[in-house]
Simulated assay, not measured.
Amino acid sequence: MDVPRFLRQAGSVARTATVLSAGFTHRDIRNAVAAGEVCRLRHGVVALPGAPSDFVAAVLGNGLLTCASGAAHRGLWLLNQPEKVHLFCRHGGPPETVVHRESLVPHGTAEPVASITDILIHGLRCLPEVEAAVMVESAVRQGVTTLPYLRQRLPGNRNGAARKMLDLVDGTADSAIEVVARLLFRSEGIYTETQVELPGIGCVDFLLEGFLIVEIDGGSHLEPRQVKKDRSRNNASTLSGYSVLRYGYADVVYNPQKVVAEVWQVLRGRVIR
């Protein structure tokens, strides 16, 4: 293996000490730089041309990407891209970043990304509750963590708010936007069931107050085959006595008041529990 290949495995950027500890020599690094395959970002840090900016920020900041900045790199859902880079740094940290201090589980990879446990704990302590719930929901859904495991790692009064956020997670959502919709409906005091199997209809995203089906449409619902399937399900739902509303990402995220108003308009037309 040569230096460029090693850097590709390490996220395209690394400290010189990391490269040397992998068995390379200073001459190997100098030759790669001279050949234009590797560039020096500063003394002690080398990278491939075009290295990801967040990885570069992490290594230059002597830290690991975590919280909202590390989520996507660990395959977790992320509702909004962070305005600043979130780093786990044991000491110091760049002033233009959000710095997290405590680490519970070593990251265990060559890339400068914190462990899933650290990313989730930092997110629960740092992010708005809906954004944190989205991250945790995806981790639970994928089976890479559990709610009891996270609760055990959030002891004491200072973690009370973070533990409370875990109550928003049930692991039933198929996407980040479904988490947002579920929390939106339940915050209104609406009896909300998720991923309900209805005879003759199939599995629906939400069943509100036992009779209103709400479906959250992703990009695949614009495909002709899916449009036909959705139309058939809508008809079957109506013929079975259910009401149906459908919403997309933009509706739920950018116009939740409209969604709630329309849901209540339907619910008030029927007797609720």
Rank of each mutant, 00 (worst) to 15 (best):
P128M: 11
P112L: 06
A72N: 13
M135T: 04
L120D: 05
P155Y: 11
E131H: 15
G70V: 03
T109E: 12
A139E: 11
I121M: 06
V134Y: 13
L127N: 11
M135I: 09
C126W: 03
L87T: 07
M135W: 01
H100R: 03
A68C: 04
K84H: 13
R141T: 14
S69E: 10
N80W: 06
P106A: 11
T146E: 06
L104V: 15
V98C: 15
A139I: 01
C67H: 13
A114S: 02
T145E: 09
H86E: 10
L79A: 14
V85M: 07
H100C: 07
V105L: 10
E137S: 09
C67N: 03
V140W: 03
S115R: 00
C67G: 03
H91S: 12
E131V: 08
E102Y: 07
L78Q: 10
K84V: 05
E102Q: 15
G93I: 14
R90N: 08
F88E: 12
C126H: 12
S103Q: 13
L120G: 09
A71H: 15
T146M: 02
S103P: 00
V85L: 07
P128G: 15
C67L: 06
S103K: 11
A71Y: 03
V85D: 08
A133I: 00
P82V: 01
V134T: 07
L150C: 00
G75S: 12
V85R: 05
R141K: 09
M135Y: 01
H107W: 05
H107F: 14
Y149H: 09
V98L: 12
A114M: 01
Q142T: 05
Q152P: 02
R90S: 04
M135E: 13
K84Y: 04
L150D: 05
V140A: 02
R151K: 08
G92C: 00
E102H: 06
E83I: 05
G143Y: 09
P94F: 09
P95D: 07
A72P: 15
E131G: 10
Q142K: 12
C67S: 15
T97G: 10
C126D: 07
P106T: 08
L79V: 13
S138R: 11
V134P: 14
T146L: 08
V113W: 00
C126G: 10
Y149R: 08
I119T: 12
I121F: 14
L147Y: 08
E83L: 15
R153F: 08
H86T: 13
P112C: 11
G123M: 12
A110W: 14
V85C: 12
L104A: 07
R141S: 10
A110K: 10
A114L: 00
P95S: 13
V105M: 03
R153P: 04
V99S: 09
Q152Y: 12
H91P: 07
Q81F: 03
R74P: 10
L65S: 04
E131S: 15
E83W: 01
I119H: 04
P112G: 07
A71P: 05
H100V: 15
S69R: 06
A68Q: 03
L76M: 14
G75Q: 13
